[in-house]
């Protein structure tokens, strides 16, 4: 019997592929904006959001989303208004998030299985009801990125010139932060809060290694994310290993592969065209 005939596997694949693609796409923008660590920071803050949900018996994904979005905007504002480096802002806020989370979890008396699934992910156990809300949110994030693709690219590349083109740079940055918050909460479903940052960084970093233009970088990042999810889930199924760890390890292998490929290609170009022609300065 094919593993695809299991309902839980179908759901895991569907959610995993879509969510990982969203994270990979966002990750390309974040890395180039030198904001690669924002996923890491938001994950810690989202932990407080989950703990809050568990304490007050609300849907933890909902409270997580709320806390993540507010934190993301907080990081943007802190950098902007207080003139603090982004990584410092992330360092401070994520510590607050973790501290608050630990206290909330202890108050809720819920150091238990459900908390573990938020920390380590449990994509193979995703319920049909959760699947639809996750797919809806992930699709929304994806559509928004597509609609603002050119503006996001321009702002990421050269924000001052983007502003002179009438692009609302600050609004766009706040939007990107909110999208990232949504991606962290979604990624939490797939690989858990402890590994969600990897989903935002590794496939994108691999795509960036090999790309000759920006669109290629996005496409490659998505391909690598999808391949990692497929391999990770199959490994998890056949060898009974955690899906989260498998997905991220496969993504890391892809990253190493991309490094090697880049070296190889550079070497080949040098070999084929001779040392002088590969980087022609003057076309006259």
């Amino acid at each position: 019997m094919s593993i695809l005939s299991y309902g839980f596997m179908q759901r895991a694949l569907l959610a995993g592929i879509l969510i990982a693609s969203v994270c990979a796409t966002l990750g390309v923008f974040l890395i180039l904006r030198r904001e690669a660590m924002i996923g890491h920071g938001l994950a810690h803050l989202t932990f407080a959001g989950v703990a809050l949900g568990l304490l007050v018996h609300l849907w933890p994904m909902g409270t997580a989303l709320l806390v993540a979005a507010l934190s993301a905007l907080g990081i943007v504002k802190l950098r902007e208004k207080a003139g603090i480096y982004e990584d410092t802002a992330i360092g401070i806020l994520s510590s607050i998030g973790m501290a608050a989370g630990v206290i909330l979890v202890s108050l809720a008396g819920s150091f238990n299985v459900s908390l573990m699934s938020y920390l380590f992910g449990n994509i193979l156990a995703i319920a049909p009801s959760e699947l639809w809300s996750s797919l809806a949110l992930a699709s929304t994030v994806f559509v928004v990125i597509i609609l603002f693709y050119q503006e996001l690219l321009f702002t990421t590349f050269d924000s001052e010139s983007a502003k002179v083109s009438g692009i609302r740079v600050k609004r766009l940055e706040a939007m990107l932060a909110a999208l990232t918050a949504a991606a962290v909460v979604l990624g939490m479903k797939v690989v858990g809060l402890l590994l969600v940052a990897a989903l935002l960084v590794i496939p994108s970093a691999a795509g960036l290694q090999m790309a000759g233009n920006f669109f290629q970088a996005i496409v490659l990042a998505i391909i690598i994310a999808v391949v990692s999810v497929l391999l990770g889930l199959f490994t998890s199924f056949y060898w009974n290993l955690p899906a989260s760890g498998s997905i991220i390890l496969f993504a890391s292998l892809c990253f190493l592969g991309s490094l090697a490929l880049r070296r190889l290609r550079a070497g080949l170009i040098r070999l084929c065209s001779g040392p002088d022609n590969s980087y022609k300065i003057n076309e006259e």
Partner: peptide
Amino acid sequence: FPVSAREVVAMGLLSGKKFPR
């Protein structure tokens, strides 16, 4: 930054466009 010459020049067209650009 992996952006092609074409992509950079295309940025210059955005100011004349309305959403979605």
